[in-house]
């Protein structure tokens, strides 16, 4: 009895954790799920390039042809034909947030992103002169 309750709590917590670590998605088409996991990449110092392998997943309500695009790149990263779901591993290498878009024959149907964060967020500003107090 208690075991089942604990299992349910763990399941709920795990779901919450999974949802919170997946990229916030903007579904432009009803019923379509599209996210990145993990959705955050952390480098040491603000401005550094951050490296993170992310898993991009989508699940569509109807079969179709879909393509994955990354912001600032004209060509699709990957395309699927006649599917309702797809997954793709992408190597993030960026010093700014990376946006991903899911397109079908009608255009953009969803988007998600991976945010870049740093431990040390302040860049020092150095002066250019002598200082006497």
């Amino acid at each position: 009895m208690y075991g089942m309750k604990i299992t349910r709590i763990f399941t709920a917590l795990s779901t919450l954790l999974i949802v919170s670590s997946a990229g916030a998605q903007i579904g432009l088409q009803s019923g379509l799920e599209f996210n990145a996991k993990p959705n955050r990449c952390v480098a040491l110092r603000k401005g550094q390039t951050c490296y993170q392998r992310v898993l991009l997943r989508f699940k569509a309500p109807e079969t179709g042809n879909y393509c994955l695009l990354v912001e600032d790149r004209a060509e699709p990263v990957h395309c699927w034909s006649n599917v309702t779901f797809g997954r793709y591993r992408y190597e993030v290498e960026s010093s700014k947030n990376v946006k991903f878009y899911l397109h079908n024959s009608e255009g953009r149907v969803a988007e998600t992103d991976v945010s870049i964060a740093w431990v040390y967020k302040n860049r020092s500003s150095r002066r250019t002169s002598w200082r006497i107090f």
Partner: peptide, 10 residues
């Protein structure tokens, strides 16, 4: 080690 010349509080 920290990829930055000084000048910060930590």
């Amino acid at each position: 080690r920290n990829d930055e010349p000084g000048n910060e509080s930590f």
